[in-house]
Structure formats: C-alpha cells, structure tokens
C-alpha cells in the first residue's frame, strides 16, 4: 500500500498490560484496557492514550517514537519489539499482551533497569558514530572529511531479552555487547588485543549457543548473532596466528 490511505477504519483492541509497583502492586497483575486502533496506531500510541485518559500511573520507557533511541523495547504478544513501531493491528489479535523485557531487573510496570545492560555495552568500545556506507558515489562538501552516521545498534536490550542464554546467565556479555565489540574491532576503534581480552572468556563470545534469536528480533538490522559468529572467527584466527608466532 502507498502512503495514501494508510489510515483506515478503526477497530477495538484490548491491551493486557503487566502491572507491578514494588510494595504497592505486588505481586504483579495484568490490567486490561480497550483502545480504538487505526491501522497506524502503535503499541506506544496506545500506552500514551491509556496514560493520558485512563491511568496516569502507568509506567513505560519511551523517547524518540521512531525506532532510534531504543528506550521502548518490550514484549508484545510474547515477542520483543519496539513499542513505537509495533502496530497493534499487525499483531492480528483482538487482545494484545504487553510485558516488560526479560533478562533485566524489573523496576515497575513495563520499565526495566538498564544498568546491567549498560555495564556490558560500555566496555565494548563501540563509538556512537560510524562512517556512512550510503551513497558511496556521493562527493563530499568542503569541510566534511567523511560522511558519518550513528551506529545501527540502538542499545534497546531487546536481543538480551530474547536470548535463551542471557536469561539463565546474568553474567553473559550478551548479543549487543559482543556485536558492539565486533564493531569496535572492525572500525579499529579499539586494538584487537583489547577487544579479544574483553570477549574471550566463559561469559563472553563462547557462552553463545547459536540460537540466533537476537538476530531475529533485532529492530535495527544489527544482526548481533551473525556478528558474534564473525567475532569468533576473528578470535580463532588471532589465536592460531599467535600460537605459530610463539612456536
């Protein structure tokens, strides 16, 4: 469909939202709300409407509303998505279940604590900005040495929530952190020895069991699973070379 006529008839959709406030709504429960959804209405739009008109205490993380900041990752009908681009009618169900991400401590309602995630991302050494690979034929204007753009990874924590290993091994660096380490290696942002020291251990690149679910759920085309595998290949090659140099 083209952009003309994207809006269409609305239909009622029930949102079943996990609620939790330590010591207040404890144990957690599900609250249900009904919204009239047009074809463009996202899960985030629905949460905003619920917060504005039905329950101002509903908590969820959100910021940019266009899949660029990575704050609104949550489980929609059991699958991790960015609420800002997950359209309600696309779910194909009359009831849509909204839950917080797994593998991160729950703060309240749909909000999880991003601290453990940030602690695994920060030491990877990936820069925020990379060289742009779009339109390689384009000339650059005076004063601009290279076209740059932000990295694909928006650090949304979705891959960790979907990773079966991260769910049982809290120490695991996780798909995003390993993919970031691979980027830092490829761009030369950090020396290879440092990157390998960060990932070459039980909770690093070897903890991955190749479920590749991270690549399947990633909303930003990072394909972390693929990068973990590529990182392993680089690491093995590095070790083999080092072994023969020593010998």
């Amino acid at each position: 469909m083209n952009q003309h006529g994207r809006f269409g008839p609305t239909r009622p959709i029930t949102l079943k939202i996990l609620r939790y406030k330590p010591g207040f709504i404890d144990p957690p429960r599900y609250d249900t709300f009904q919204v009239q959804a047009d074809p463009l209405m996202t899960v985030l739009d629905a949460l905003e409407e619920i917060k504005a008109t039905a329950d101002s205490t509903l908590l969820y993380r959100h910021s940019c509303h266009h899949a660029s900041c990575g704050t609104c990752g949550m489980k929609v009908n059991g699958r991790e998505q960015l609420a800002c681009v997950a359209r309600l009618v696309d779910e194909g169900t009359d009831e849509v279940v909204v839950e917080p991400l797994g593998s991160a401590p729950l703060v309240a309602d749909l909000v999880v604590d991003m601290t453990p995630f940030a602690l695994h991302m920060a030491p990877s050494g990936m820069a925020l900005v990379r060289d742009s690979e779009f339109m390689p034929e384009a000339e650059r204007p005076a004063g601009v040495e290279r076209y740059t753009r932000y990295e694909d990874c928006i650090e949304c924590n979705i891959c960790l929530s979907a990773c079966p290993v991260a769910n049982t091994n809290p120490g695991f660096i996780g798909p995003a952190g390993l993919a970031a380490a691979y980027r830092a290696l490829v761009t030369g942002e950090r020396p290879a020895a440092e990157v390998f020291a960060y990932v070459d251990h039980d909770d690093g690149v070897w903890r991955c069991h190749s479920a590749m679910e991270c690549s399947a759920v990633c909303p930003s085309d990072v394909q972390p699973g693929h990068k973990i595998m590529a990182l392993r290949r680089e690491l093995v090659a590095y070790k083999v070379k080092r072994f023969f140099k020593r010998g």
Binding site: C64, S68, C69, G70, T71, M135, A138, G143
Partner: peptide, 24 residues
Amino acid sequence: RLEPHINPQVKLAVQVPDATMDCW
C-alpha cells in the same frame, strides 16, 4: 554530486553547518 537523490530540478543550494543529534 553531493546528494545524488536530490530533486533534479534543483537550482542551487547553500551549505551551512547543520548536523544531526541523537535526541536521547
């Protein structure tokens, strides 16, 4: 030559120091 996708009707342009920020 700078922007291959620009409207081919373009008459001229002025370069200024705009940039993109990450709002979060």
